[in-house]
Amino acid sequence: MNTLPQFQVEVVEFAAAVAQLHAVRERVFVQEQQVPVELERDAIDPLCRHVLVRDAHGQPIGTGRLTPDHRIGRMAVVREWRGKGIGEAMLRTLVDEARRMGWHELGLHAQVSAIGFYARHGFLPQGPRFNEAGIEHQTMRSLVDAANPVENRDAACAAMLGLIAGCRRVLRIYSRELDPGLLDTPEVMTALRRFATGDGEVRVLLHDPAAPQRALAPMLGLAQRLPSAFAFRAIEEPVDREYAPAYAVNDAGGYYFRTLGHRFDGETRLDAAPRVRQLCAAFDPVWERARPCSEFRALGI
């Protein structure tokens, strides 16, 4: 059981809590999103593991479930309680329950508007988007207690969103030329702006600082507006320039590593402190040797 001052998240038996589970789901899915009730209620409900969130007065305000095929579903929070951390608490509880049952992989069908939410918690998009109950969805998955393979640009963006969201104070990025198609996407830029304006620090090591200058990379413009939050250095030592991978690490145990720095494919995990310590131990000496990119301060972007 996960207890917070304003609400309580609990794993419940379907038969005992069916009325409260349906009350939340009917408000969110049937009334608000116009999903037909015959689609919302299905035959596998009694076979699922459910979480129920109640407010301080015992009223149901959120639901979620784990299906027998190892998927998270029916994540719903009533409108007046959104933005208060209930979704995060439910998701953590569901992942913990899956871990307790020995599951090694979790999947889900995210409404497109919720992709960023799940990405911030380590789920990566997989395959094309599709329509379900008249709403556009995206399949997402996460390996439990293991590195997740990053296979394409969408998954790379999701990996970066997870890293930035979990970062406490310092985000380290080792990049060849500021990764066009990844570090310049609106979603990642929004996450970086939010992190930087919240007293975060971003350190970027570059092989080719001239490339993002020529491209007028949006991160450089953001750095000019928030100079105390961003620092760029150019790698000039020959031995350092031979290094082919690229990676990003936060200070909360999260990393995204690519063996070939000009590609998006690699692996990511948000709870891998030993691996992060290794990458920081590789990053920091190169950072000390690298040249500060003073030319970025006067780009006129």
Rank of each mutant, 00 (worst) to 15 (best):
M101L: 15
A196Y: 04
H57E: 15
I72C: 03
A23G: 11
Q33T: 13
T259Y: 15
L47K: 12
S175E: 06
G266Q: 02
V35E: 05
C280W: 06
E13S: 06
L226H: 08
G87L: 08
R153Q: 12
S228Q: 01
A252R: 05
L270V: 07
W81L: 05
E97M: 06
I164K: 14
R275T: 08
L143R: 13
S113L: 09
N131W: 13
D271L: 06
H104G: 15
G85F: 07
P245D: 03
A248Y: 09
D96M: 03
N250D: 08
L66A: 12
G300Q: 02
A246G: 10
V150H: 09
V249L: 06
R65Q: 01
Y118D: 04
L143M: 10
L182R: 13
G107E: 13
P36A: 14
P292H: 00
V77M: 10
V53F: 03
E151M: 11
L216K: 15
A272H: 04
A210K: 09
A282F: 08
L222V: 05
G166H: 12
R41F: 12
L260C: 15
E201R: 13
D179E: 07
G254N: 12
V24F: 06
P68W: 12
H121Y: 14
A281H: 01
T93R: 11
R277A: 14
E288D: 13
A146W: 02
